[in-house]
Amino acid sequence: MPLLLLAIGLGAGILSGVFGIGGGIVIVPALVYLAKMPPQQAAGTSLAALVLPLGAAVGALTYYRAGHLQPRDALLIAVGMAVGAFGGSWIATHMDGDVLRKGFAVLMVLMAAKMWVG
């Protein structure tokens, strides 16, 4: 299991560095389907991993040095994420796991369609 979790983190780190994604789109589904975690545990584990900013900080520094990062924008998003994560985690911990999993799938399909269309 530790090697699987390291592999999930590595994959999420690579995709995060390339696309700016990670937690919800990569880590949560991998934990649910590969590590066999319930959706709530996968979401909590993903959020906890994101609290450790080392990986993201290194990637963000690379973007900053290349002139592709506005720190003020990132800070405002981080504040919004903190408030949203608190509320969202409360909601998720009070939902049925199947409903949460299916809702997540709908969100991913909608986001994929929007990205495809432009």
Rank of each mutant, 00 (worst) to 15 (best):
K114Q: 08
V79G: 09
L110M: 06
L100R: 01
L75S: 04
A113D: 00
M108W: 02
A78H: 03
A74F: 00
Y33N: 11
W116E: 05
H94P: 08
V28N: 01
V83M: 15
A85S: 10
T62F: 15
I77W: 00
P38I: 13
Q70V: 14
W116V: 13
G9R: 07
P39E: 02
M111F: 15
L3N: 09
S46Y: 05
A43Q: 07
G97C: 10
L110T: 05
A57C: 10
Q40T: 12
Y63C: 03
W90R: 15
V51C: 13
I27K: 02
P2Y: 15
I77F: 14
L69Q: 05
A42G: 08
A30V: 06
M95Q: 05
F86C: 11
A30L: 08
L10Y: 12
M81K: 07
V83G: 14
A105N: 11
A12H: 04
Q70D: 14
I25M: 14
G13M: 04
I8C: 01
Y33D: 07
G44P: 07
K102N: 12
T62N: 12
I27M: 14
Y64I: 02
P29L: 00
G17Q: 00
S89W: 12
G17M: 02
V109C: 14
M111V: 15
A113W: 13
Y64E: 06
P53K: 06
G55A: 11
M95V: 03
V117D: 12
L54W: 03
M1F: 13
G22R: 01
D98I: 15
L110E: 08
R101Q: 03
G88R: 04
A35V: 11
A7Y: 10
P2V: 12
T45K: 09
V58N: 01
G59W: 00
L50M: 08
I91M: 15
F104L: 14
W90N: 13
H68V: 04
M37R: 04
R101Y: 09
F104D: 05
A42S: 03
G59N: 01
Q40I: 08
I91K: 10
I77Q: 03
V109P: 12
P71C: 03
I8V: 01
G87R: 09
A42P: 04
Q41C: 07
M108N: 03
F19A: 05
I14W: 06
P71Q: 02
T45A: 13
G13V: 06
F86D: 02
W116L: 14
L3Y: 10
G80Y: 00
A48I: 01
G80L: 00
A57F: 13
A49N: 14
